[in-house]
C-alpha cells in the first residue's frame, strides 16, 4: 500500500489507450495528475483531420474521463516524428499554433527523431520554434533505434533552436544516454516498461549515480505492453533502496510540476472521485 500522503504525477502516459480500470488503479496508487503527450496511434493516420479529432479528444473527453477518477489531466500536442514523414499529415504544423494556445496544453510534444530523416529534421526545428514562440516547454522523444546517435543529433538541433535547456525534457533515456543528456542541462525523462527501455531497479541505480535533480519518471503506458503503475513501482523501489519519502516526492511530483509548470497552465485541483457526482456518472454507470 502506498503511504496516504504519496502523490504521483505521471509526466508521460497515453490514457486514450487505457481503460477506466487503469484510472481507478492509478488513483489508488497515488496518481493525482498526469500529462498525455500526443503520439502515434499504432495505425498510421492519413489526413490532418484525424489529428484534429485526436487533439480535441485530449482537450475534451480524456480530461473529462480523468476527472471522474480524481486525476488532473493535461496534454502536450505536436506532429509526432514518425508521421512527420508522411506529406499528407504535414498541414498539421500550420494548425498547431491555435491548438497550442489552449489551457490544457502544457508543452509541445512528443517531438524528436524516429528514423532521423530530412522530414523529421524539418518538423523538429519547426516545432521547437513553436515552443519558443508560445513560451511552452518541449517534450523531446529520443529514438528507440540508434539511440545514442539520435540523441547527439537531437542535442545539435536543440542548441540551434534557442530554446533554453531548462525548457526541454529528453525522454526515453537509459544508461547509455543519460550522461550526455545530463550534460546538456535538459530535464531527464525515463520511461519504465515491463520488459524494455527501463525497469524500476535500473531506474534506482541511475538515481543513485545522477541524483534526483531534473529527473522525470514516467510509465509511457500506451496500447503496447506497458503498465500505468510503473511510476508507483519506482517509488516503492526508491524507498526499498534507502531513498526517503521526500526524494520520492521530488522525483514523482515536484519535478514534473516544476517542468510542466513552466507553461503557467498546470491546474492541479482535481477533486476526489467521490466528490464528483453530477460530473461523474456518465462513465461510472457505463454510459450508453
Amino acid at each position: 500500500m502506498p503511504s496516504p500522503t504519496r502523490r504521483i504525477f505521471d509526466p508521460h502516459i497515453h490514457m486514450t489507450s487505457r481503460t477506466t480500470d487503469d484510472y481507478a488503479a492509478m488513483y489508488d496508487a497515488g496518481v493525482r495528475a498526469l500529462v498525455e503527450p500526443s503520439f502515434w496511434l499504432g495505425q498510421p493516420r492519413t489526413s490532418p483531420a484525424s489529428f484534429y479529432d485526436y487533439f480535441d479528444s485530449l482537450l475534451g473527453w480524456e480530461p473529462f474521463r480523468a476527472a471522474q477518477y480524481g486525476i488532473a489531466h493535461h496534454c502536450t500536442l505536436a506532429l509526432n516524428p514518425k508521421e512527420a514523414n508522411d506529406p499528407r499529415c504535414l498541414p498539421v504544423l500550420d494548425e498547431l499554433p491555435r491548438y497550442l494556445l489552449k489551457d490544457g496544453v502544457v508543452a509541445v510534444g512528443e517531438i524528436g527523431y524516429d528514423a532521423m530523416t530530412p522530414a523529421e529534421d524539418t518538423a523538429l526545428a519547426a516545432q521547437l520554434e513553436l515552443a519558443r514562440t508560445h513560451e511552452l516547454p518541449a517534450l523531446v522523444h529520443t529514438p528507440h533505434r540508434d539511440k545514442a546517435a539520435g540523441l547527439a543529433r537531437t542535442l545539435d538541433v536543440l542548441r540551434e533552436s534557442g530554446l533554453p535547456p531548462a525548457s526541454v525534457a529528453l525522454d526515453h533515456l537509459n544508461e547509455t544516454t543519460v550522461g550526455p543528456a545530463a550534460d546538456s542541462g535538459c530535464w531527464l525523462g525515463f520511461s519504465i516498461y515491463p520488459d524494455t527501455k527501463m525497469d524500476p531497479d535500473r531506474m534506482v541505480r541511475i538515481l543513485r549515480v545522477h541524483g534526483t535533480e531534473r529527473v522525470l519518471v514516467n510509465s509511457a503506458a500506451d496500447w503496447g505492453r506497458s503498465d500505468p503503475l510503473k511510476t508507483a513501482h519506482v517509488a516503492d523501489a526508491m524507498l526499498a533502496a534507502g531513498f526517503d519519502e521526500d526524494d520520492v516526492d521530488q522525483v514523482l511530483w515536484r519535478n514534473p510540476v516544476a517542468f510542466y509548470g513552466r507553461s503557467g497552465r498546470l491546474r492541479l485541483d482535481a477533486t476526489a472521485p467521490e466528490a464528483q457526482l453530477f460530473e461523474g456518472n456518465s462513465i461510472l454507470r457505463g454510459g450508453e
Binding site: F278, G280, E288
Partner: peptide, 12 residues
C-alpha cells in the same frame, strides 16, 4: 432521457 442516463440532475 440522456440526463437520466448520465446522471445530470434535471434541475440543470
Amino acid at each position: 432521457l440522456k440526463c437520466l442516463f448520465t446522471g445530470v440532475p434535471l434541475a440543470a
